[in-house]
Design a protein around this nucleic acid. Structure first.
Ligand SMILES: NC(=O)c1ccc[n+]([C@@H]2O[C@H](COP(=O)([O-])OP(=O)(O)OC[C@H]3O[C@@H](n4cnc5c(N)ncnc54)[C@H](O)[C@@H]3O)[C@@H](O)[C@H]2O)c1
Ligand SMILES: NC(=O)c1ccc[n+]([C@@H]2O[C@H](COP(=O)([O-])OP(=O)(O)OC[C@H]3O[C@@H](n4cnc5c(N)ncnc54)[C@H](O)[C@@H]3O)[C@@H](O)[C@H]2O)c1
Lengths: 214, 214
DNA sequence: AAATGATTGTGAAATGAGTAACAAAAATAA
DNA sequence: TTATTTTTGTTACTCATTTCACAATCATTT
């Protein structure tokens, strides 16, 4: 498989490239150069070319890249053309926002069900997604589920992740502000909005200082 | 100022360190070694020690770090002990979740007001935060505001950011799936949940392949 | 008070990512 | 057809970050 040598940093940019190509195809743009594409996503054109080169020669010299071809290639690379099913655990404020958002529109990805412990939520539908009881999670067969989105309070995130793992889920997108300790068979990505906001404020404070002192 | 030589990667870990120290202090732990702390946040202990070393000698050899002291130090470094005011633009599903969450509890950070274009929202309070009309944003004086959280639809993010910039806001936490083009005086952080989910699925697919082929 | 053990702080080495430079190739123009 | 322009793919280089290795230092035990 080609993809074994793809650097982590490159792999993390692919979804952005894919989404940007979708927009380009949608507005009827059939070709684009690495520099124009780079301007669009605010990444150096050399980085773009290098990223694509890990997958072979996707462009044509003197011409650029065919948007439709590149988009199709990335779709296959990212999803292997299969629908990825995910579950959401914790139907609170953030969980409800995510259910409403629905990732399916542009990606081969769907939240197929949700879990919560709140009896008043269990059995209801939130934005068309059924809410199941947390009790059933560990014993359910979720081996066809790619990933779980964790939007439970921090104190319950570890336990919830373990239950999901027991049901056959190996991927986790953790929105709660806590680190998960899971066996190496699991893969966790952590989206920490609080940290993002704090980091933003830190950089603002310190870049201002630099300007003042110069 | 010491902080001029702090690498970006280090600066981005500080908020996580700070929050973890808060938990440790809360449960009464008074000292911790870099390796125990590293286990907790899942970062190599050498990286932890090196990160702290950019700020001078914060620990004691043969002993470790004093949690209270380190926490206080990081609070001052991160916030300079001033309350950071932020605004939120776009009181929809995600915006409402963020307003409800309220970052103030653990950080010196507060969402002081919100903006939206929806007439049915303008003038109301959402989770205790007043919603202002978008019309007034560009002409408001927001020079005391550190950052704007952008939770408007992608098509409106650029315009909203420009208006906020005009009102004196220079920091942006952009949740919409689009790249912002702003002058160098602005600092933007992009939280793209769709990209996170796609990247997660990509890594799952490809690490599985590797396992199968080995 | 001396010996032992723990743990930091830090140069040096290794890894990884981003950037620059440019030959090769294809497209386009003359 | 030939010349010129465009733009890729890639090699070499630079920069940033992580990891290694270990002396220096402090805490703790005897
Ligand atoms: N709301 C935000 O904007 C925001 C921002 C950043 C981080 N977060 C984090 O996301 C997580 C959820 O935030 P929220 O604002 O949606 O909280 P919330 O309290 O609104 O929702 C939590 C939901 O999880 C359910 N729950 C509680 N314990 C559970 C368990 N053991 N198993 C299954 N479900 C359980 C609750 O019934 C509730 O529906 C928290 O960890 C929070 O820190 C939220
Ligand atoms: N909801 C999610 O979980 C989620 C997840 C990932 C990304 N996002 C992104 O976050 C953004 C908001 O998502 P959402 O689900 O909250 O959408 P939403 O439609 O629920 O809310 C959007 C809000 O913005 C307001 N708005 C629209 N145009 C505006 C303008 N020009 N100026 C000011 N306010 C304006 C609307 O009145 C509405 O209140 C979108 O860009 C979305 O792609 C959302």
């Amino acid at each position: 498989m080609v993809s074994q040598n793809v650097p982590q940093a490159t792999a993390e940019r692919l979804p952005l490239y894919y989404r940007t190509l979708q927009s380009l195809v949608a507005v009827g743009k059939t070709r684009i150069s690495s520099s124009e594409f780079g301007d669009l996503v605010q990444i150096d054109s050399t980085t773009i070319r290098k990223d694509f080169s890990y997958f072979g020669a996707l462009g044509r010299k003197g011409y650029g890249y065919d948007t439709q071809y590149l988009m199709d290639f990335l779709r296959k690379t990212l999803y292997q053309d299969e629908l990825s099913k995910v579950v959401l655990i914790g139907v609170g404020h953030l969980g409800t926002a995510l259910l409403n958002h629905n990732f399916q529109k542009n990606n081969n990805t769907k939240i197929v069900k949700a879990y919560d412990i709140d009896p008043s939520l269990i059995g209801t539908e939130v934005s068309g997604t059924e809410v199941h009881a947390m009790d059933t999670l560990a014993t359910d067969d979720n081996s066809d589920i790619t990933a779980a989105i964790l939007t439970v309070p921090a104190a319950h995130a570890q336990k919830a992740a373990e239950m999901a793992l027991a049901s056959g889920i190996h991927g986790f997108l953790n929105f709660s502000p806590t680190t998960l300790s899971l066996p190496a068979t699991a893969y966790v990505r952590h989206v920490d909005m609080t940290v993002e906001l704090q980091a933003l404020i830190y950089f603002l404070n310190h870049s201002m200082e630099e300007r003042n002192s110069q």
